[in-house]
């Protein structure tokens, strides 16, 4: 029964070997307002010692953020992981004190594109662009 491996066509598995839900360890997504696109993260103090037991993905994130602040979206881009997965990873890493998270400066609230365009137009007509 072990012979004739293939008269019928071979099935090739193209999906990633490690499924994403294993990478996150089955943890839930953090609440929406945490770890927005522009939230900045960096490595915490003495994190490199603890990093040895991390999964390869978490270690990759640690490497990325070890010498400075990096936005969550950038972490996602560099690791090629979906944003939600990165957020789960970051939440876990923050929980174990590996990273420091800095919330983005909140958006200026009243800024409105039309209004600004109008102001700009006004300035242009006043001073000449």
């Amino acid at each position: 029964m072990r012979d004739e491996p293939d008269q019928d066509l071979d099935l090739e598995l193209t999906s990633p070997l490690v499924p994403l839900f294993v990478i996150t360890g089955g943890h839930a997504l953090p609440p929406d307002h945490e770890y927005g696109h522009t939230t900045l993260v960096t490595a915490g103090e003495g994190a490199s010692a603890a990093a040895r037991t991390l999964s390869p993905e978490a270690r990759q994130v640690m490497d990325l953020v070890s010498d400075g602040f990096l936005s969550v979206a950038e972490v996602a881009g560099h690791t090629h992981l979906p944003l939600g997965i990165v957020r789960i990873l970051l939440a876990q890493m923050e929980g174990s004190g590996l990273i420091i998270v800095r919330k983005p400066v909140p958006r200026a609230e009243r800024a409105d594109r039309e209004l600004l365009s109008a102001v700009l137009d006004g300035l242009k007509t006043r001073f000449g662009a």
Partner: peptide, 9 residues
């Protein structure tokens, strides 16, 4: 595709 969406869970 829906990496940033709550449906990911």
């Amino acid at each position: 595709k829906y990496g940033g969406h709550p449906v990911l869970a």
